[in-house]
Design a protein around this nucleic acid. Structure first.
Lengths: 115, 115
DNA sequence: TGAACATATGAACATCTGTTCATTCGTTAT
DNA sequence: ATAACGAATGAACAGATGTTCATATGTTCA
């Protein structure tokens, strides 16, 4: 067995081992889908604002300087990813973060960005 | 001052307060740019694999079942975001995670996804 | 009931993104 | 030098994404 063959086998072994350790394809796909949500400045702003407390759609739109419609569409995406929850009070709908993960994820991201 | 005016003022106060607490626009923009990187299944897979140890481009392509070119393009994006580092050994280039943030961010994401 | 208001939704459009293909670059060995 | 190999790059194309506009839903109050 020459050197290159040995080298190739070493590769194949490592590749096989990693393949085993990899989570199911679907899990990593879902993970990417989750991060996709964070990967838009409008949505990140929404999440950041909501990390400070609940707020209604109208105020969110005002703070972000975008259409009410745009905010609504994005909140829909956040809802679908279970990142926010909402409650209705008369004509007004208040949104808030669904759980603590969001804060942690954002905090880690900010640490990386601010280095 | 009637009720609706009071209500409106309450809104404006809260909006103003949150506006103060918000990080600079550019920071949140950069944050979104960072998460955008995680928001693609090919890149997430790359990051996950690299979290297990360094690996060369060829093997990465094989593991992911995509072109060497595609991997190279995506590694470029990861490099630009300072998420990976690399070293050359002869004809081969080995990639590895740049720091620990990636693992933390992914772990938090996985927690959320697997609920 | 109907007017007024807050929010949600659908369609359309321009922009962005990720892949492939072809080619080039960098390195090693003959 | 040149062939062979791994990796990087650029152009191009198909598909996804975010916004706006128009309209619909849901709620309150007169």
């Amino acid at each position: 067995m020459d050197e290159s063959t040995e080298y190739l086998r070493a590769h194949q072994e490592q590749v096989a081992k990693v393949k085993e350790a990899l989570p199911q394809d679907e899990v990593l796909y879902d993970l990417a889908e989750l991060f996709k949500i964070f990967g838009d400045s409008t949505r990140v702003k929404l999440l950041y604002i909501l990390s400070l407390g609940e707020m209604c759609v109208y105020d969110l739109a005002q703070l972000l300087g975008v259409t009410q419609s745009a905010v609504s569409h994005q909140l829909r995406a956040l809802k679908a990813s279970k990142l926010v929850r909402y409650r209705r009070e008369g004509k007004t709908v208040f949104y808030a973060l669904a759980d603590g993960h969001v804060k942690t994820i954002m905090a880690q991201g900010l640490e990386h960005v601010e280095e």
